[in-house]
């Protein structure tokens, strides 16, 4: 008892992020090493964000300002919103963003719902032909979407969905990898808990809602985030399905803007910022759950 009390009152030695003299902790860098580390981190940081910062600065520069100078002037002398206004005049960028959002949100909802249902069955229940179902999902992983591009388009066309957002959305509505991830997450739920709930009279839906859902929420956030990013960033499939510029999603719209109205790079830069900023903000807000989920996934998966 006294021991715990004293250890609680004694202040732990202050943690230095670097190795001090006499410390044997070789995993910590020395002070010089730490400074070098930050120098390297800042160097990589510059490499990673420079294109984005440069693009943003370009989108704010007026027509008279040089955008290709070196060393690059990243702060525009006279910031202007004209380029953004010009984007709105040139292409229906709000429609494009709306289309991307619709496809993205739809993909998230269907993937989360159906992957959780399927993962619950595969991860916690015993049934005949379960191995066949698992084999179907695993073998699907081996088939890249690019390989089935042509016949996938024929399928969508025969469903009458060519050149529609439904055609963009449907093939990605349930991803095999998401079902398998949810299966791995559901397998971690203790069987006793589920049995206890069953004995207490909970039906399948109640078990899903009150036992499964709280247990797999970490994995759900990873599935949701990746589903959204995948749908928002996808280019090849919408490019193949959509033929009418009025139906484009943002990525195809950006390529359309860049190849058909190539006159002013400042306007194109403004367009790409419109496509970029929402997804970066979303990630910045959700990144804590994301990295936690990835760690959980790697530990469990």
């Amino acid at each position: 008892m006294t021991a715990t009390q004293t250890s609680a009152t004694v202040k732990p030695p202050r943690e230095n992020p670097y190795r001090t003299r006499g410390s044997a902790d070789i995993m910590k860098p020395s002070l010089g090493g730490l400074i070098g580390k930050y120098a390297m981190l800042l160097g990589v940081l510059a490499l990673m964000v420079f294109p984005f910062v440069w693009q943003m600065s370009t989108s704010l520069k007026g027509a008279s300002e040089n955008i290709y100078d070196f060393p690059p002037s990243l702060i525009p002398a006279a910031p202007t919103r004209d380029n953004y206004a010009e984007v709105f005049r040139t292409i229906p960028v709000v429609d494009y963003a709306w289309h991307s959002l619709l496809v993205g949100v739809g993909t998230v909802i269907t993937n989360v719902v159906f992957a959780t249902l399927g993962g619950y069955a595969l991860g916690t229940m015993k049934f005949r032909f379960k191995w066949v179902v698992l084999a179907i999902f695993f073998s699907t992983l081996l088939i890249p979407a690019e390989v089935t591009l042509t016949s996938q388009y024929l399928t969508v066309k025969s469903l009458g969905l060519a050149n529609t957002l439904w055609g963009v959305f449907l093939p990605g509505a349930i991803g095999a990898i998401n079902v398998l991830l949810m299966t791995a997450a559901c397998r971690m739920i203790p069987a006793d808990t589920l049995d206890a709930a069953t004995i207490d009279g909970a039906n399948t839906m109640q078990r899903l809602r009150h036992i499964v859902w709280p247990n797999v929420r970490g994995m759900v956030s990873v599935v949701a985030l990746f589903a959204f990013i995948g749908a928002w960033d996808d280019f090849l499939w919408p490019l193949v399905v959509l033929s009418d510029p009025a139906n484009y999603t943002l990525t195809v719209g950006m390529q359309y803007l860049s190849s058909n109205f190539a006159a002013n790079p400042r306007v194109i830069a403004a367009g790409t910022m419109i496509a970029l900023v929402p997804i970066i903000l979303l990630f910045a807000v959700l990144q804590k759950w994301f990295f936690k989920g990835v760690e959980e996934g790697s530990v469990k998966g």
Partner: peptide
């Protein structure tokens, strides 16, 4: 119940992955 739960996923894999692959 388990078949109902996995059915949507299996249908999707069949229509949007396996069938296009065989068709290819």
């Amino acid at each position: 119940t388990p078949y109902l739960l996995v059915l949507p996923g299996v249908i999707w894999m069949a229509v949007f992955a396996l069938w296009p692959f065989l068709n290819t």
